[in-house]
Simulated scan of single mutants.
Amino acid sequence: MELRHLRYFAVLAEELHFGRAAERLHMAQPPLSQRIRDLERELGVRLFDRTRPRIQLTEAGALLLEHTRPVLAGVDTAREAMRRLRPGEAGMLRVGVPPDTRPPVLRTLTAGFARRVPDVLIDLHELTTDEQLVRLREGELDAGVVRHPSDTVGLESGPVLRRELGVVLPADHPSAHPADPPSAHPADHPSAPGGAPVRLRDLDGASLVIFPRVMAPRLYDHLLLVCRDAGFLPGAIRHARNPDFVHGLVLAGRGVHLNEAPTAPLPEGLVWRPLDNFSLAWLTSVVWVPTRHNEAIAAFADAVHESLTEAGHRPHDRPHDRP
């Protein structure tokens, strides 16, 4: 018994007219009649009563139809599921984003992607940079939004965007209200809101609250190296990845935290200040396996670029506009 024969039978059972059924199946009437006879011969029963002016289902035919409908529905469901798993048009795109991606960025990203390729579903996964790189190479992701520096050997990357980092401090920290040096007015900094820039060397000896190294080893090492070269050697390093836990540690006086300018008010008792060191920045891009590139991945890269730009990120290769 072939699946197509069951489909022929189901359509004829619905139409009870060979001509209309053949038209729905895009085939001639004689082959349809032959396929139904073959099915009846195989099952050893008559499925249709052809002795009346209008053909009717026999008792055996009605029983077979009862069993056939869920089979055909299950096949259609399976086909739809497989179709949506294909990356690209009328499929699904599996992508990774950093755990600290801001809500406005996600909103703009998903809306921008849907606008570009409305027939593709986007399956978002909250993953660290290294988790994304592993899954990309194993074929479990189609694209990822990663932070640099990172090990992207063998992967293709879209344009790199940057967002300068500042420091989250307790409101009573000595660096929370620095005097404005003549050459360092807030307007000189890409993230002007937040007061005069803080010098990294003025944080020397303070504990640093930072993401665990396993999340992005190369980025972790790079941040600590920049801090060391600028005169900031942390007295201790405490790891945290949840923003609430990070802010709780800073509020409790357990360290300072490096991050981009907040998009929402910080908890009472905390302040964000820009830094005078432009080497500290989130460098972000979309990456993918070159052989899997398609229209959906290109649309995702464009949507990420749009959402990050709207959030204050800018091209990495463009110098600061300094007076």
Rank of each mutant, 00 (worst) to 15 (best):
V120K: 01
S207E: 11
E89N: 09
D317E: 15
V11Y: 10
M92G: 05
L3C: 05
P170F: 04
A261K: 13
T129L: 11
E156G: 11
R37T: 11
R102Q: 11
H185G: 09
P103D: 00
A184T: 00
L106D: 08
G194K: 00
R84V: 07
E295G: 12
H148F: 13
G61Y: 07
A196H: 14
D204W: 12
V246A: 07
R46I: 02
P103L: 00
G139D: 01
A206I: 04
L203S: 05
T152Y: 09
E23H: 11
E310Q: 15
P262V: 07
L16P: 15
P149H: 04
L63M: 13
A90N: 11
R147T: 12
R7K: 10
D172Y: 12
S157H: 13
R135I: 10
E23Q: 11
H247M: 09
R102I: 03
G166W: 03
L25Y: 10
T291Q: 14
L32H: 13
A264C: 02
S150E: 13
A22F: 00
E89V: 08
V286I: 04
V246Q: 09
L65D: 04
R228G: 06
P193E: 02
V198H: 06
L32N: 10
M92Q: 06
P170V: 03
V120G: 04
P274W: 01
T68Y: 06
L141C: 01
P193V: 00
L25N: 10
P181K: 04
S183W: 13
R83D: 10
E23F: 04
V168P: 08
Y220C: 00
L223Y: 15
H305F: 14
E260C: 02
P149N: 03
E40N: 05
L47V: 08
P170L: 02
D123Y: 06
L64C: 07
V105P: 01
G144K: 00
A81W: 06
P323T: 01
R20F: 06
R314A: 14
F18L: 05
L280G: 03
E23T: 02
E126S: 15
S33L: 13
A264H: 13
D204N: 15
R115G: 09
R84G: 07
Q132W: 04
L275Y: 06
Y220E: 01
A60N: 10
F113C: 02
A236K: 15
P243T: 01
I55Y: 01
A73N: 06
R7T: 05
P31C: 02
L25W: 11
R7W: 14
L224M: 12
L93F: 00
G255K: 08
L6G: 02
N277V: 04
V75D: 00
R218G: 03
R115P: 01
L25Q: 09
A60Q: 10
V11C: 05
M82R: 11
D276K: 13
N242L: 08
D119P: 12
A301V: 09
V160N: 10
T101W: 08
